[in-house]
Design a protein around this nucleic acid. Sequence first.
DNA 1: ACGCTGACTATTA
DNA 2: CTAATAGCCAGCG
Length: 132
Amino acid sequence: MPVKRKRNLTREKLNPIKPSGKREESFFELVFEIARQIPKGRVTSYGAIAACIGAKSSARLVGWAMNGSGKVRPKVPAHRVVNRNGMLSGKHHFSSPDMMEKLLRKEGIKVKNDQVADFKKLFWDPALELGF
DNA sequence: ACGCTGACTATTA
DNA sequence: CTAATAGCCAGCG
């Protein structure tokens, strides 16, 4: 039984402001960076990404970050990010509510009743895969 | 500046 | 099993 530790990350830790450079790494950028690493045909959860960054309890912010996923480049496969139950909770934020499911099916992921089938099998843990 | 909202999650009843 | 609650923090009115 591993010890659970809650690490609360402050914005200052995650977002070291660089006065000289315009390029600031925000929580969002970090999230995007992780999200881009998700292999095709795999999915992950908001919490997993948050945990990977170190802000386990800030899963909401990950979702919020996805809100701007369409504005950054390269593209962020936001459709591969679902909640911890494998449910397509963010489908309503796509251009069309069916878009997310469509994209997932296109990659070979079966979606049933707004849920990813075999979610456990398809789950891609960034903390594990990236060696965090 | 203050309070509410939200693409979440873990815990408790 | 399901339901309610608390923590989380960036945006927005």
